[in-house]
Amino acid sequence: MTSTPMPAPAAGTPTANASEAPADEGLRAGPLVTPAPAPATAGSMIAIEGVSKWYGDFKVLTGCSTRVARGEVVVVCGPSGSGKSTLIKCVNALEPFQEGQITVDGTRVKDRGTNLPKLRARVGMVFQHFELFPHLSITDNLTIAQRKVLGRSGEDARKRGLDLLDRVGLSAHAKKFPGQLSGGQQQRVAIARALAMNPVVMLFDEPTSALDPEMVGEVLDVMVELARDGMTMMVVTHEMGFARKVADRVIFMDRGEIVEDATKDAFFGQPRSERAQQFLSKILAH
């Protein structure tokens, strides 16, 4: 049960967010997360080492290796079918992989002894189609995992959930149901739901691809805020504006391989591979 080196955040763990924050509406009310504490162990938050994955005979990932340091924001891009969504889902073991290893905050993902639910509870994930639970109110969406997975009391969970809902500017909607919100609003709730678990890292799987264009901005604003607060983030996205603004590094994938893994400036300045150049020219052309 205690295979993870860091204790899971206990109920009532003092964080900047849990303290009494002014109940202002809007995105700028305060930091979304506690800045990451000094590394407890040396090394990266996420270490992906030689990961390969097959669906039957079809190889979807080929020897992928990269690292995400504490507090770093890494954008993963590439054409559809390049394996980027699959790779990010391997990080919290939503997708099994056959070869290689992934270590998240010192815990090996592919290890018999690893308590996967416990690991996943500390890794926030935001999905393309939001995946709020349609039968639960916004408040219940924000609190159910805190209560059932982290064992927080209803009151603590509620306080934390509503606090985060306030930070994403949606506290007026606490009693509504997902079907009553716009796509952009749902995605902001989904981000708050993930943050409510006090994750040590946040994964975003194309968080704006399913949104109407006019709603992309509100979601990206929340993500930019989160990045500036020091959250460790791995983001699969085509939003190159977001990458330019807050990414520390950009990873370019094609046909299941990591083709390019460079700092933001190097990637946008002069991508080394021809495939990345082509991709960039296509995506920036319109």
Binding site: L94, P117, K118, M125, F127, E131, F133, V149, R193, A194
Partner: peptide, 14 residues
């Protein structure tokens, strides 16, 4: 949607 199961799993649900 398949994502519902994934979302539950990603939140740490058994």
């Amino acid at each position: 949607p398949r994502g519902q199961r994934l979302a539950g799993t990603a939140l740490g649900f058994t």
